[in-house]
């Protein structure tokens, strides 16, 4: 379903925040798609890495609800290929940080069984705790 979006001051603020955290100039992104084309995990993602860049640029905060940034393994394939020398993995990281700092507690450590703990991606578990520390 096509959506209608609104460009807002909050959105512009959000972009600034992500640019500051990641150190990347997201408006430099040309939407060439090289990052998405090369990402080894793109099939697992709900939106593509290049879409993350676009949504962030347009200040669409719902980008924080996407799974992509959690699936990104920071493998740097996109980073070495981006013709604009942008580092998408840093942007993913900045988005993760931002999401975590909203400090929404989804994990109750006591509810996790031993088997589940072995299955869970460690990055998720570590992040779950880190949100209270950083």
């Amino acid at each position: 379903m096509p959506k209608k979006i609104k460009l807002t001051d909050n959105g512009a603020e959000f972009l600034k925040q992500i640019e500051k955290l990641s150190g990347e100039t997201i408006t430099m992104c040309d939407q060439c798609g090289t990052c998405s084309g090369g990402c080894p995990f793109v099939e697992e993602m709900d939106i593509m890495p290049s879409q993350i860049m676009r949504m962030t640029m347009l200040g669409q905060m719902e980008v924080l609800d996407s799974k992509t940034m959690w699936i990104c393994a920071s493998c740097f394939t996109c980073t070495v290929r981006c013709p604009r020398l942008l580092d998408v993995s840093k942007v993913s990281e900045a988005l993760r940080q931002t999401k975590l700092r909203q400090a929404i507690d989804n994990i109750n450590i006591d509810d996790i069984s031993k088997e589940e703990a072995e299955e869970l991606p460690s990055i998720a578990v570590v992040s779950a705790f880190r949100k209270f520390t950083s």
Binding site: K4, K6, L7, R54, L58
Partner: peptide, 11 residues
């Protein structure tokens, strides 16, 4: 329309 992300902007 932002034809690259296929979304309509109304602002």
């Amino acid at each position: 329309e932002d034809t690259l992300s296929r979304q309509v902007i109304e602002s």
